[in-house]
Design a protein around this nucleic acid. Structure first.
Lengths: 150, 150
DNA sequence: GGATAATAGTTGTTTTTGTAACTAACAAGG
DNA sequence: CCTTGTTAGTTACAAAAACAACTATTATCC
């Protein structure tokens, strides 16, 4: 490319624009881990997120997961169906309120979760190793704030 | 949700996992700006990215844009077609290498770019205002590193 | 120079997502 | 109770993304 056209007081650089930077960093930093749950476990992103939530926080409803991870209910519905099909989770109709399903992992689901968590943990460590521990702590704080997860 | 199942030395918290955190922050921080180019300009994300690249860096080829922003060529091809249709950009066949098209903005494209850039700039400032300027500088540096944009 | 491979970009097909409308169950007010 | 409104989750259809196969052009190298 040529002709930078910076003749019009253009202090703006796309490469510093936070939404763009965040997206690029998110994509790049997800890539390698994505290969694992995708190729090795045949899972979609929403599927491992549901798996992780159930593994990490225990029994939850679809709505709980959706609120916590800001995932739309239709995506969760489909992910749950797929995970159930693969016998990674089971649903129990809540008899107090029969609209609700209480979701939890099966043995198989739990064992996949443990494996993936292990991988995620060391992957996270690898990413974090590029910076000082103070920097990483600050980064996580800022990301949580930007994500509205305070 | 109940039953945290933290009985199995589970120091892992999904809410601190960098790829997850980055994705959440990216999505949340893009939302408001997305409304602008989507609802007000009828553009898709790839379309404004192409527009921004051409506005920001001047004449480029589809391949240039793809490499710089890590966007797949089919997505770019379709975005370019749409932007051309709306008379926001023009293509010039490179006579040195007739496989290549040199892309650049039209007047209309440039004026949309300027408007959107203005909005992007103040949106970025609003996001950045949540932190000290030192923190933001560090954040951008870290994101660039994570994005492999060094 | 002619076969073979590589490159820029496009098009067609399949997956995945987004959106809206739907079912079933519960809640609230009259 | 019984209409009206909400809520949990599903399903159907439309939009967008991913992936593979394609065309046209240029580069390689025997």
């Amino acid at each position: 490319m040529t002709n930078p056209e910076n003749d019009e007081k253009d202090e703006f650089d796309l490469r510093n624009f936070l939404p763009f930077l965040l997206n690029q960093a998110a994509e790049e930093s997800s890539l390698e881990f994505q290969q694992v749950y995708k190729n090795r476990y045949g899972m979609l992103r929403t599927e491992w997120r549901v798996l992780f939530h159930l593994g990490n926080y225990g029994e939850m409803t679809a709505k709980d997961i959706g609120q916590r991870a800001k995932i739309h209910k239709t995506k969760i519905s489909r992910a749950v169906a797929k995970l159930e099909q693969r016998r990674f989770l089971k649903r129990i109709r809540d008899e107090e309120d029969r609209r609700v399903e209480r979701l939890s992992l099966t043995q198989a689901g739990h064992s996949s979760y443990r494996e993936l968590r292990e991988i995620a943990q060391s992957y996270d460590a690898k990413l974090a190793a590029q910076f000082t521990s103070g920097e990483v702590a600050l980064l996580r704080m800022m990301l949580r704030r930007l994500a509205g997860m305070d």
